[in-house]
């Protein structure tokens, strides 16, 4: 494509038009993708009283008071902890179980391998629906139970296909050599196949982690216990329930003194700050993990 340079001399009108349109569309879209994030961040860092009369480019009267006030409340930090826990435990569980299953599925000697494989793959297209899921999870005793976050998601058929496809491309000779040395099934899995599958494992882990961090439905429907609340659900409460925000803003005398009563906190400021707290973990890992995301979608494309 860099041979296009040759064409510079005889660009016609349509190409100039294309160039202009291209730049406009891309710039507009990039701004549309960044600005909402930027806006809530500057809002959360501004003096709430001034922010409510309109800010759009820079924070006005930079302050961290809204953050201090929110962290003083006893709901965000525990919920943040639960979210981190479910992300870590859920990701490790799912990646381990799914890759072990994927490795098993590469064993050609396994009896009924095709049937087993189909049995698992079909689940990607079966969706029992909300109520059957709800009833079954309840029956299994997963209501108001942390395990609800990490157990049902332990195996993902789709990820299993991706990992299996990757493992099948690994050179067989290493494995054979190890087997001759007397390595058993688990030796081969842990010492050879798993380390060699690092690229795909990393990609899947990042996906799982983001998925875990973002999920809230299981929490909303079944884990109504306050101690199991995740940060996503807390955010939803802050935005939809005026009462919750009012509670949050209720004057905490000790805190008011500490802040010197200088700042009048508004519901909007509270809400924007909780949005930032909820999205910050994803935004922090995102730039580093982005290459894995892109890799993942390519793998999916190859499979499709």
């Amino acid at each position: 494509m860099n041979k296009n340079a040759k064409l510079v001399g005889n660009k016609d009108l349509s190409e100039i038009l294309f160039e202009i349109l291209k730049n406009i569309i891309i710039v507009v879209f990039v701004i549309a993708c960044i600005y909402p994030f930027y806006y809530v961040i500057i809002y959360s860092l501004s003096d709430p009283d001034k922010a409510q009369y309109g800010i759009w480019l820079w924070p006005v009267d930079f302050t961290l008071d809204t953050y201090i006030m929110i962290f003083e409340r006893n709901d965000i930090i525990p919920a943040f902890g639960i979210s981190v826990l479910r992300t870590v435990i859920g990701t490790v569980t799912s990646v381990f179980c799914t890759s072990l299953l994927a490795f098993l599925m590469t064993r050609k000697e396994m009896p009924f391998r095709k049937v087993v494989y189909r049995f698992i793959i079909i689940t990607m297209y079966l969706d029992a629906g909300l109520i059957p899921w709800y009833i079954v999870m309840k029956t299994y005793g997963l209501q108001n139970n942390f395990l609800l976050y990490v157990v049902p998601s332990a195996i993902s058929a789709y990820n299993m296909i991706l990992i299996k496809t990757f493992m099948e491309q690994l050179p067989e000779s290493l494995e054979e050599a190890a087997a001759i040395e007397g390595a058993g099934f688990f030796d081969i899995f842990f010492r050879i196949v798993l380390p060699l599958s690092k690229p795909i494992i990393a990609t899947i882990s990042v996906y799982c982690a983001v998925g875990q961090w973002n999920s809230w439905r299981d929490n909303f429907f079944l884990n109504t216990d306050r101690s199991l609340k995740t940060v996503q659900l807390i955010l939803r409460e802050y935005i939809t329930s005026a009462q919750k925000v009012a509670e949050a803003m209720e004057n905490n005398p000790a805190l008011a003194q500490q802040l010197g009563n200088a700042v009048q906190i508004t519901p909007e400021a509270v809400q924007m700050t909780v949005v930032v707290i909820t999205m910050v973990p994803v935004m922090l890992v995102y730039p580093f993990a982005q290459k894995y995301f892109t890799k993942g979608i390519m793998l999916g494309a190859v499979k499709g």
Partner: peptide, 13 residues
């Protein structure tokens, strides 16, 4: 990569 909860929060703002 952000949840619909966060999208809702952004849209609210």
């Amino acid at each position: 990569f952000i949840s619909w909860v966060v999208v809702f929060g952004l849209a609210h703002g």
